[in-house]
């Protein structure tokens, strides 16, 4: 694993609560932005792109936090 990734992983492990709150805030901000301004027209291309990025971040977060104490 690359040193920068390892560093980020350690940071998430140490501050998992604030990182979790940040992820919730990002999702809620995305929903608010979509509601008031809109993403990508009828096919919601912009929204899907943002969701994909959010999904990958949340999956990485859940994986990292679930493994605290196992490694």
């Amino acid at each position: 694993m690359k040193p920068r990734v390892k560093l980020l992983q350690r940071y998430v492990e140490k501050h998992n609560q604030p990182v979790g709150v940040l992820l919730i805030a990002l999702v809620l901000a995305t929903l608010a932005f979509d509601n008031f301004i809109g993403f990508g027209g009828q096919n919601l291309i912009g929204l899907r792109l943002v969701y994909l990025a959010l999904m990958l971040m949340i999956v990485a977060y859940v994986y990292t936090v679930s493994n605290i104490g196992k490694n």
Partner: peptide
């Protein structure tokens, strides 16, 4: 417990 909280966070999201 702390290790199960992410699963609940995901459920809420």
């Amino acid at each position: 417990g702390v290790k199960y909280q992410p699963a609940m966070l995901v459920s809420a999201l």
